[in-house]
């Protein structure tokens, strides 16, 4: 990723609704042409943050600057920001053409230019020839595309997307993920994308901001977020994890399950208690003698690409994703390589 100019800077952003604090001092910088995903469970404040950027909510405290200018003083309709809404929010009394042309008509753009731009937008979202169709005759996926076209025609500097793929089926969603990413690269617009779907976030983003209970848990590129979760919440929320208590006797060593392992983490106090994160796909089932530690296969579920195998080590359960099955009740060894052991600060019992 090229280093780019900061576009939006958020400082100590706080939002309260009737005494309930939804955002607790968010600090965040968003750069030009960045695809940023706000990821978190429902109620984490991600939509509120997006609505403040869109101008639909006012912050209780803190500042939001857009190219250095205080954004909170600018009403929604004067911002160079457009939104794709969760339920599309297309105007049911207007046809496809008029929905997309809505923003340009308000700017009194001449009709010929409107027509040219609407047609260009329709081909961008691959719905040529849909001009005269009524909104109610469109499928969810098509409505989604119209909503995107309607927002993009105004050539915003930032496009806000509020769980735009939530209502689509899996196949269509994957297709749209790919297309949105392509569009963002092609148009060079900053996308701020809100979702609770970690896979979507990992697939599309340059930067993921993981939110929980109104606070940023971690900000980073998808690979870092997945491989080096900051805390238990991130580890659990992004993909499946085995989280095991351990101790760091020294840098590059971690002890858990009664053994000391090599690892790649450093910077902890001597004998500091830590959480050890191991992704299910990083655990390998090997013959009993070759394993770092051993356990008994408790259950095997076929998941398509892989088997999900639960191995009991003492009274702790490990989830293993393996391409080969194992027989239930058999004793097996478990192996994990040093770079797949992720150590994070102890998050409490």
């Amino acid at each position: 990723m090229l280093q780019k100019k900061p576009l939006i800077t958020i400082r100590n952003l706080t939002k309260e609704f009737d005494g309930e604090v939804v955002l607790k001092g968010i600090d965040l910088t968003i750069h030009q042409n960045e695809f940023v995903t706000l990821l978190g469970p429902s109620g984490c404040g991600k939509t509120t943050l997006l609505r403040i950027l869109g101008g639909f909510e006012q912050p209780s405290d803190g500042e939001v600057r857009f190219e250095g200018i205080d954004l909170t003083q600018i009403p929604a309709y004067k911002r160079e920001v457009n939104t794709v809404f969760q339920k599309y929010a297309l105007f049911p009394h207007l046809d496809v053409y008029e929905n997309i042309a809505f923003g340009l008509r308000l700017k009194k753009v001449p009709e010929a230019a409107i027509m040219e731009k609407v047609n260009r937008m329709l081909s961008l979202v691959k719905l040529d020839g849909f001009q005269k169709r009524s909104i109610t005759s469109l499928s969810g996926g098509q409505q989604q595309r119209i909503a995107i076209a309607r927002a993009l025609i105004n050539q915003p500097k930032v496009l806000l997307l509020d769980e735009p793929l939530g209502a689509l089926d899996l196949k269509l969603r994957q297709e749209m993920q790919y297309e949105l990413k392509e569009m963002q690269k092609e148009l060079g617009i900053t996308f701020i994308f809100v979702t609770h779907d970690q896979e979507e976030a990992l697939t599309m983003s340059d930067t993921i901001v993981v939110l929980n209970e109104g606070q940023i848990q971690q900000k980073g590129c998808p690979v870092d977020i997945y491989n080096e979760p900051n805390n238990r919440f991130v580890a659990n929320f992004i993909g499946e994890s085995n989280i095991v208590p351990g101790v760091m006797p020294m840098d590059l060593r971690v002890a858990f399950e009664g053994q000391t392992f090599h690892c790649v983490d450093r910077g902890f106090r001597q004998n500091e208690e830590v959480d050890v994160v191991i992704r299910p796909e990083d655990l390998q089932i090997v013959p009993e003698r070759e394993g770092a530690f051993t356990g008994v296969v408790d259950s095997v579920i076929f998941k398509g690409v892989h088997y999900e195998i639960l191995v009991m080590v003492g009274d702790r359960e490990y989830v293993v994703h393996a391409t080969k099955s194992a027989s239930i009740g058999s004793k097996v060894g478990l192996f994990v390589s040093p770079e797949d052991i992720h150590v994070m600060k102890w998050g409490g019992a």
Binding site: G55, A89, F91, G103, N154
Partner: peptide
């Protein structure tokens, strides 16, 4: 009238008066 439609109109640049007239 869906509150989202009002938000959408404002988002696309409609002043409160234009939002009323057009949506």
């Amino acid at each position: 009238v869906d509150a989202n439609l009002v938000d959408a109109a404002r988002d696309l640049g409609a002043s409160p008066g234009e939002t009323f007239l057009k949506v």
